[in-house]
Computed example of a mutant assay.
Amino acid sequence: MAKPVLEVKDLRVSFKMYAGEVQAVRGVSFNLNKGEVLAIVGESGCGKSVTAQTLMRLVPTPPSYIKEGSSILFDGKLEITELTEKKMEQVRGAEIGMIFQDPMTSLNPTMTIGAQISEGILKHQKVGKTEAMKRATELLTLVGMSNPEERVHQYPHELSGGMRQRVMIAIALACNPKLLIADEPTTALDVTIQAQIVDLLRDIQKKTDTSIIIITHDLGVVAEIAHRVLVMYAGKVVEQGPLNDIFYNPRHPYTWGLLRSVPRLDSDNSKELESIPGSPPDLYAPPVGCAFAARCPYAMEICKEKDPAHFDVSDNHSSACWLMHPDAPKVEPPVGIGGHAHG
């Protein structure tokens, strides 16, 4: 069995703030295999973007710090948490590429598209400017840009939002990274362009066999592209498993809530979409028990007192919920849960 491209163990990231410590990521563990697309989902503030940015050490330190005992092993040999900033600069772009959520603020308005794509190539690969520019044009072709020879000489303001996002993807792919992290890559785009960007990422993954982590709160995007899903809540992973298991056989009440808040094409849409009542806990003082207990209709006494371990549903599907305990009352998922993904 090949080694995973990425092994994250007990990742804890906190922010030192005036009022105390915000525990943004609280013991996240997962592996990512070569050529796999992993989606990390959850509502705003659950820690998914901090997790993604910590993988590239992009969260400003201070106020953030990675806590003792956290491990991010990349490519079987690089312990990301221990690398100097200088060494990280060699990894970013060359080994791990990142697509940020807002292409307008991430691109430099004073530089041409070609210059921005070739910047990473010139930094990490031993090639001249002409060769780098040629590669930039090829990358624009790869990401489905029309007239790439002209586009390389244009500036970001001359492109539409969807085109700018394609440029961001080209920059992230410039040095053939082993891992691509896409942080909410479709948030700022309209629905038709979103679909094109998701198709594009899927094509690129097939052509280049790159491993991809996609951070999103959009389960429609997840159903289209992911092989495996990590559901995060209040800085922790509450459920993880293959795409079909999470969509067809979810076992955590928070995952049920997420799935019920998504419109379905195959059901009676006269019913109102359900939202999850309440709001996520304050991560200055996280609850001692299950963080979801206060919002969970199935919460028992133990949920408020003790944080659940991960219970195995199957070999590669687990849920951190006391309902999975053999002594817990049997609870059926709400009506309409399961059956709306296609792998």
Rank of each mutant, 00 (worst) to 15 (best):
V8F: 08
V8I: 12
K9P: 05
V13R: 11
S14N: 11
S14Y: 10
Y18K: 15
G20D: 00
V22F: 00
A24M: 07
F30L: 10
N31M: 10
K34R: 15
E36V: 08
L38I: 06
I40R: 05
V41I: 12
G42Q: 05
C46Y: 07
G47S: 11
K48H: 07
S49H: 06
A52Y: 08
V59D: 07
V59G: 01
I66Y: 03
I72P: 03
K77I: 05
Q90Y: 11
V91P: 02
V91H: 01
R92Y: 12
M98P: 06
D102T: 04
L107W: 08
I113V: 15
I113C: 00
Q116K: 03
Q116E: 11
Q116P: 01
I117N: 00
E119R: 09
E119Y: 07
K123I: 04
H124C: 12
H124T: 11
M133C: 10
A136G: 08
M145G: 03
M145E: 06
P148S: 15
E149H: 14
E150G: 13
R151P: 04
H157Q: 12
G162D: 05
Q165S: 00
L173Q: 05
A174Y: 05
A174I: 02
C175S: 10
N176R: 15
P177W: 03
L179R: 01
I181F: 03
D183W: 06
T186W: 10
A188M: 08
L189D: 02
A195L: 11
L201N: 01
R202M: 03
D203Q: 15
K207D: 12
I213K: 06
H217F: 09
E224Q: 15
H227L: 06
R228G: 05
V231R: 04
A234Y: 10
G235T: 12
K236E: 13
V237C: 10
E239A: 13
Q240M: 14
Q240Y: 11
D245E: 12
I246M: 11
R251C: 14
T255Q: 11
T255F: 09
R264I: 00
S270F: 10
K271G: 08
L273D: 03
S275P: 06
I276E: 07
G278W: 08
S279W: 07
P281M: 02
P286D: 14
C290N: 04
A293L: 07
R295M: 01
Y298N: 14
M300C: 03
I302P: 05
C303Y: 04
E305W: 07
E305I: 02
D307I: 08
P308M: 03
A309P: 15
S318T: 13
L323I: 09
M324Q: 13
H325P: 02
P326N: 14
P329E: 12
K330Q: 15
E332Y: 05
E332K: 14
P333E: 12
P334A: 06
V335I: 11
G339K: 13
H340Y: 13
A341N: 07
G343H: 14
